Every structure is written in structure tokens, then in C-alpha cells.
Simulated scan of single mutants.
Amino acid sequence: MKAYFTYIILSVSSLVYSQLYIGNDPEQLTEAKLSQTYGTSEVPSLIVDDNVLVKGKLIFKEGQPGQVLRSNGPGQEPTWQTVLGQIQRLENLNYLLYTQTFDNLTGINLDNAPTNPTLKYTIDQSLSSNWQVIAGSNQEFTVQRNNPTVYITFESVAHIAGSGTDTGAMFACGIFVAQKTGTSSPSNADFKLKGVRTFTANRGANSDPFFNIRVSTILDKSTLLENQKYEVKIGCTRRENFGATNISLAIGKAATGTSNISNTTARTFLKISRYENTTNQ
């Protein structure tokens, strides 16, 4: 909350000349409402969700980057103060944070057609037919300024049917990203691999075991363009079966012929977080 309020103060410090209200009821900004509540001589300059009240002789334009508004107690005017310590690692608090999480109940049954257990993956390789895209995992984000930092995290459940020591399957899941132009989705060849992990689902002695899986990546900021939209896809591929051949394996859903978990339990989550320097420095 401290960082969020600080960002608001720094953002509006050069723009506010009279009244600014941030809250759920914009009608409270009317002069009559403010005067009725605070009196004609004490109309506040800034209100944030009715929890922070700034009034008196504070001059917003005096605030400098890296400063926060400090309360000096009852009867004392607030002042601007430079923040010391770890908070300076955020480069004067000039970062805008966008985070959104998506969930998906569709999932995929991973084809029982192994590709290659020794296959090596390289960053920026195209999304080929060897990968099965999780339907509904497509999501978009927009870069507003140069040199952003973008984190993408994919989390799901791998569910494999049956049991048997030293039997199971190896598979991989990857995060693919493409630059988007217009309203149509880019072709699969436009999607480039940005993060990947390989997994082993060993059925063991338990019947129909399931495993939590996670893939995270940080995009290369030099490849992300200002004012550009991007699309994310999640793909998985079976690398090898071991100890058995006909193995039912699902990602983000219950495996065929099983009943110990539901599609809701196994569903996929995708989180995209974007940090941008609002001063372009």
C-alpha cells in the first residue's frame, strides 16, 4: 500500500492544481458535496478511497521523484520526504505494474506419440506441430514503453492414468510468444519459444497419480517493442513413454479413464506481469 500510494502522489504531483478524487463515487467531487462535508475553507485536494485525506497548505508540485508524502501528526502539515533504503531499488518508484491471472478448464489429452526423449529445445524456436496447444490458454498483453520487464508463469496439473513401478511418461511444456498485428491471431510459425521445462510422470505404486507442473520465464526486453501487442500460447509435447506404451496423460484436466481428480482441480493458470519505467530512463 505504501508503494501504491507513493506512486499516486508522484504521478499527480505535476498535474494537480485543485481537487482530485480517487474512489468509487465520483459524485463526491462536486463542490457542494465537498463543502458540506469539509467546510468551504478546508476542502481537501486529494482523497484516496476515503482512507487518506490531505488538506491544508500542501503544494503537490513540490514533490520530487523518489519522495513520499509524510504525515507529521495531528495539527502538523504533511511534508515531502526522500525515501532511503531498499525502496530505491525501484528506480525512484517510476515503475508501473500490470499483473493479470487467467484460468482455463479445457486442458489437453497429450497424444500418445512420443517425439524424442533426447530432443533439446532452444529459445525462439517456432511452435511446430510436435507441440499441442492448450485450448483457451491464448492471452494478450500490450507493451506501452521501451525496455519493459515481462514475467510469464504457467501452472497446471499433469494427470496420468494407471499404476506400475517404473512406468510413465516424459513430457515438456513451453511458453510461446508472438507479436500481434491487427485482430487475427498470428500463425504458429510466428510464436517463438520463450520458456520450457521437461517433466517425468512416474506412475509408481499409486493409481492415477497427478503432479503439479510450473514453467516461468522472463522475456528479453530488447525484443519487446513500444506500443506493441503480444499474444501468449502454452504448448506441451510427449517426449517418451517408459515401461509401458499405451499411457493416458493429460495436462490441465483429468486423464481419460480416471476419477480421482476433477477438471477444476487440474485446471491451468497463466500469469502475466509487466513492469515498465514510466519515465523511459
Rank of each mutant, 00 (worst) to 15 (best):
Asn147Pro: 05
Trp131Thr: 10
Thr153Asn: 10
Ile152Pro: 00
Tyr151Cys: 11
Ile134His: 01
Asn147Glu: 13
Ser156Thr: 03
Lys180Arg: 09
Met170Cys: 11
Pro148Ser: 14
Ser163Phe: 01
Thr181His: 04
Ala135Thr: 14
Gly182Thr: 09
Gln139Pro: 02
Phe141Asp: 09
Ser185Ala: 15
Ser185Gly: 05
Tyr151Leu: 11
Ala135Leu: 08
Thr153Gln: 11
Thr149Ser: 12
Thr142Ile: 12
Ser185Gln: 14
His159Ala: 03
Glu140Lys: 11
Ser185Leu: 15
Met170His: 15
Ser156Gly: 07
Ala135Lys: 04
Ile134Thr: 10
Ser137Asp: 02
Met170Lys: 15
Val177His: 04
Phe154Trp: 08
Phe141Pro: 00
Ser163Lys: 09
Phe141His: 05
Val143Arg: 03
Thr165Arg: 14
Gln179Leu: 12
Gly136Arg: 00
Phe141Glu: 07
Leu127Cys: 12
His159Trp: 02
His159Arg: 11
Val143Glu: 13
Ala158Trp: 01
Glu155Gly: 15
Thr153Val: 13
Ala172Ser: 15
Val150Asn: 04
Gly182Pro: 10
Ser185Ile: 12
Leu127Trp: 07
Ile175Phe: 06
Trp131Lys: 07
Cys173Asn: 03
Gly162Asn: 12
Asn188Gln: 08
Asn130Gln: 15
Asp166Pro: 08
Thr153Pro: 01
Ser137Arg: 01
Asn146Gln: 15
Ser129Asp: 11
Gly164Leu: 10
Ala169Leu: 00
Glu155Phe: 02
Val177Asp: 04
Gln132Lys: 04
Thr167Phe: 04
Ala169Ser: 12
Thr142Ala: 08
Pro186Ile: 05
Glu140Cys: 02
Asn138Thr: 13
Asn146Met: 12
Val133Ser: 09
Thr183Tyr: 06
Ala135Asp: 10
Ala135His: 12
Ile152Trp: 03
Gly162Tyr: 08
Ser126Cys: 10
Val133Thr: 13
Ile175Asn: 00
Ser126Ala: 15
Val177Ala: 06
Ile160Glu: 02
Phe176Glu: 05
Ser126Pro: 15
Ile152Gly: 11
Val177Gly: 06
Gly136Val: 00
Arg145Pro: 00
Met170Arg: 14
Glu140Gln: 08
Gly182Ile: 03
Gly182Val: 11
Glu155Tyr: 00
Pro148Val: 14
Val150His: 05
Ala135Gly: 09
Gly162Val: 13
Ala172Pro: 07
Gly168Ala: 04
Gln132His: 07
Leu127His: 06
Thr183Asn: 14
Ala135Val: 12
Glu155Leu: 10
Ser128Asn: 07
Thr153Cys: 14
Ser137Gly: 07
Val150Gly: 04
Ser126Glu: 10
His159Ile: 12
Ser185Thr: 14
Gly174Ala: 10
Lys180Thr: 10
Gly182Ala: 10
Val150Ala: 09
Ile175Lys: 08
Lys180Met: 05
Gln132Pro: 13
Gln179Val: 08
Gly174Pro: 03
Lys180Tyr: 06
Ile160Pro: 03
Gly168Gln: 01
His159Thr: 01
Val157Gly: 06
Phe176Asn: 04
Thr165Lys: 13
Ile175Pro: 02
Gln144Met: 12
Ile160Leu: 01
Gly136Asp: 00
Phe154Glu: 01
